[in-house]
Design a protein around this nucleic acid. Structure first.
Length: 508
RNA sequence: GCCGCCUUAGCUCAGUUGGUUAGAGCGCUAGUUUGUGGAACUAGAGGUCCCUGGUUCGAUCCCAGGCGGCGGUACCA
């Protein structure tokens, strides 16, 4: 029975691409989310929460020609063998919700959603398999005013979060314009009428354009042609276009760089899509958006037209936008870090149609909260100040705990975070505990104080300052820096004044 | 997915041409200080030397495969 079997213990470890989040970051994140929520609410969006997982077919993530879920999503089977998947964004669940409740909803339907999403991909630096997304969407309208509003929302949110005008840009393009340009070089971009070859080429071209910021004009040009070999020796197959086609595309890409205004950008693009019905329509929409943005003051400093914005998503059908941070910061090692895109979105007119057969054109914008947070942290805009810790009532005599708890209660009633030491160690350990917890002060009431009807209040923050000039331990101990006695009844009053002294000043 | 680099204490890293007890700094615990967080000094705890297999009398070290991490690239709803 009692065999000496070696017990197998599980390793305490995190799943790949997952992370724990500590108090400082949670507090900062909550503050961010509250700020974003305020902006979204002010635009009239209503909150909506949908579950973490859905039926895989509702998310539209089955592999073609099989009954297995697509790669990239975390999936599992229910008891009845139906496939379920964790949501990988907030938009697909929204589509399901709208389709399911279409008749009851006010149209246009406008909601926001915040929560974690999961992607089963290789994690990278700053890229995890679970992260927070904050979405706003307007469903059931074709009006580009809705798209323009998304851009305004994006800009307002950035500024509400303390990112100054000029430190971010919301860049706008249109899928219709991109398709118009493709048509202009003889590639039918439509799924229904284009050949398989053309559809594939379209994807390759769009991906190439999307990489402009990283690879530069040369790299993009190579990817449009035969292909490109990167420094690790890996070869990426190109789109295989001929020089004339490439030339036209490069002109298109450059249109934003040369122009001084959004209007000028649109004008120079216009010439390139003239022969395409889709392209003309795209330009028209962007111009209308531009008019709205200009009349409300969201001009080039905040929102601008950029023909190189693509967004990888297959489902975008009209205007697309991306919020980007434009400042550079240095990491710990002095290497420049670019944050790039911290949010994006666009128009997707077919997402709900998938369920109902009825058109429910929609547009949305999504912020990558976690990513934006690390950017803000690097910018020093992140409030890493955890605030004051909890006031700790030391346990000098374990028999007096009812008395200590009564003190704690009095402090709590006054709105002060307080706790009685709950461990079993001696006073020195209790002091260390309080120190580590960031306690602004501790309350000491031993035999002597009790006899005098007093409590000792030791200001740990003041004490730490005093300690810097004290070298000798004898002096340190006998001075009892920043410690004073008050009558027991004055406890709350005294602690309140200590806290007031140390409350972080409100900045900005 | 592909290419390259890396993996030794909680953290940052030494080290062993393949040989008995694998080290440092910081951190941690305790003592000097019966009721006081810092500093100083002293002591202590803490290691499957990433895993599996191979070569060898013997592997933390050499070889192969793998896990994990980092960087690049691809994909990214």
């Amino acid at each position: 029975m009692a065999k000496k079997t070696k017990q197998k213990r599980p390793a305490a470890r995190l799943p790949k691409g997952m992370r724990d989040i500590g108090p400082a970051e949670i507090r900062a994140m909550n503050a961010m989310i509250a700020t974003i929520r305020d902006v979204y609410e002010s635009y009239g969006f209503e909150p909506l929460e949908t579950p973490a997982f859905e039926y895989t077919d509702a998310l539209g993530k089955f592999l073609p020609d099989t009954d297995r879920p697509n790669e990239g999503v975390f999936s599992f089977q229910d008891e009845d063998d139906q496939w379920l998947s964790l949501r990988y964004d907030q938009t697909a669940p929204l589509a399901r919700y709208v389709a399911q409740n279409f008749d009851m909803l006010p149209k246009p339907f406008r909601r926001y959603a915040v929560g974690p999403v999961w992607r089963n991909e290789k994690p990278g630096p700053g890229r995890f398999r679970q992260f927070m997304q904050f979405d706003a969407d307007t469903v059931a309208t074709t009006s580009v005013a809705a798209d323009a509003e998304m851009c305004m929302l994006a800009a307002d949110t950035m500024e509400a979060l303390g990112i100054a005008r000029g430190q971010y840009q919301v860049r706008v393009n249109s899928r219709k314009v991109l398709d118009g340009v493709l048509e202009g070089i003889g590639i039918d971009p439509s799924f229904s009428t284009g050949t398989e070859q053309q559809v594939r080429t379209r994807l390759t071209v769009l991906r190439a354009i999307d990489k402009l910021d990283r690879l530069g004009m040369e790299g993009v040009s190579a990817l449009l042609g035969p292909g490109r070999k990167d420094e690790s020796g890996d070869y990426t197959k190109g789109a295989g276009l001929d020089p004339q086609q490439i030339d036209k595309l490069m002109t298109f890409i450059s249109a934003g760089l040369a122009a001084n205004s959004a209007q000028q950008t649109l004008n120079s693009i216009q010439a390139l899509v003239e022969n395409s019905e889709t392209g003309r329509q795209g330009i028209e929409e962007l111009m209308e958006m531009q008019t709205l943005l200009e009349s409300t003051g969201y001009t080039n400093k905040r929102v601008l037209m950029d023909p190189t914005i693509v967004r990888g998503l297959d489902y975008y059908t009209g205007p697309v936008f991306e919020a980007e941070l434009t400042f550079e910061v240095k990491d710990d090692k002095g290497q420049p870090v670019r944050f790039g895109s911290v949010g994006g979105g666009g128009r997707y007119d077919d997402l709900v149609t998938r369920f109902t057969g009825r058109p429910a054109p929609a547009t949305g914008f999504s912020i990558g909260v976690s990513r934006l947070q690390s950017a803000l942290q690097a910018l020093g805009r992140q409030n890493t100040n955890v605030g004051l810790g909890t006031v700790v009532v030391l346990v000098m005599d374990f028999n007096e705990r009812p008395r200590y708890l009564t003190m704690v209660n009095a402090l709590r009633s006054a709105g002060i975070r307080a706790e009685m030491y709950l461990g079993t160690s001696g006073m020195k350990a209790q002091m260390k505990y309080a120190d580590k917890r960031g306690a602004p002060c501790v309350i000491i009431q031993g035999e002597d104080e009790l006899a005098n009807g007093q409590v000792q209040i030791k200001d740990l923050i003041e004490g730490a300052k005093a300690a810097q000039s004290i070298k000798d331990n004898k002096e340190w101990k006998s001075t009892r820096p920043a410690q004073f006695a008050v009558e027991s009844e004055k406890l709350v009053e005294a602690v309140t004044s200590v806290l007031a002294r140390h409350s972080p000043q409100v900045k900005n």
